[in-house]
Simulated assay, not measured.
Amino acid sequence: MQKIKAFGDWLTKWFTVIVIVWAVFNYFVPQTSLWGKSYTGYFLGIVLFGMGLTLTLDDFKRILTQPLMVVVGTVAHFVIMPLVAVLLCWIFRLDGPLAVGVILVGCCPSGTSSNVMSYLSRGDVALDVSIGILSTLCAPFMIPLLMQWLASQYVTVPVESLFLNAVKVVLFPIALGVICHAIFKEKIEKVTVALPIVSQVAILLIIGVVVAANGPKLFVASSLLAIPVVILHNLCGYALGFGFSKLMYKVYPKGFRYAQQKAITFEVGMQDSALGATLALSSFASNPLAAVPSTFFSVWHNISGSVLSSWWREHDDKHQIHPDSDNGEKGSAAKASEAGDAVKDESEETVNA
Rank of each mutant, 00 (worst) to 15 (best):
E186S: 15
L171M: 01
V169I: 13
P158I: 01
T192I: 14
I188H: 02
P173S: 06
T156M: 12
L162D: 02
V157T: 10
K187S: 13
C180T: 15
L195T: 07
F163R: 07
V198F: 04
A151I: 05
E160H: 12
I197F: 01
K185Q: 09
V201M: 13
A182T: 13
L204Y: 05
V169N: 00
A151C: 11
I174K: 05
K187R: 10
L150M: 11
I197W: 00
F163N: 06
A194G: 15
A175E: 05
T192S: 15
V198R: 00
A202P: 00
T156G: 04
V201Q: 08
N165M: 09
F163P: 10
I197S: 07
K185T: 12
I188C: 05
F184N: 11
L195F: 04
H181S: 12
P158S: 03
H181Y: 13
A182S: 15
L195M: 07
V157C: 06
E189G: 12
V170N: 05
G177T: 03
V157Y: 04
S152G: 11
I183G: 00
H181F: 14
K187C: 03
A202L: 03
A194D: 10
L171R: 03
V159I: 09
G177R: 02
L162S: 04
P196A: 01
V169L: 08
I188G: 00
V198C: 04
L162F: 13
E160P: 04
N165D: 07
L164N: 14
V198D: 01
A182G: 12
T156I: 08
Y154R: 01
V178L: 09
V157Q: 02
E186K: 08
V198M: 03
I203Y: 08
I174L: 07
E186C: 11
T192H: 10
V155W: 09
G177I: 01
A194K: 14
K168C: 09
E186D: 15
V159F: 08
V191R: 04
P196I: 01
V178H: 11
L176E: 07
K187L: 12
Q153K: 12
V159K: 05
A182N: 10
H181N: 15
P196C: 02
K187G: 14
I183D: 00
V178K: 08
A166P: 06
I183M: 01
A194T: 14
S161E: 15
P196R: 01
E160K: 12
Y154I: 01
A182Y: 09
P196T: 03
S161I: 15
F163Q: 08
V201T: 11
G177F: 03
V157H: 02
L171A: 02
L162V: 09
V159D: 03
V159N: 09
V170T: 04
F184Q: 06
L176R: 03
V169E: 01
I188F: 03
Q200M: 15
L176P: 07
V170L: 06
Q200Y: 13
I179Y: 00
A166M: 07
K185W: 07
L204E: 08
V167Y: 14
S199M: 05
F184D: 07
C180R: 00
C180Y: 06
P196W: 07
A175W: 02
L162W: 10
A175P: 05
P173E: 08
L176Q: 08
S161Q: 15
A202S: 10
V193N: 01
I174S: 03
V191E: 02
L150S: 10
K187Q: 14
F172E: 06
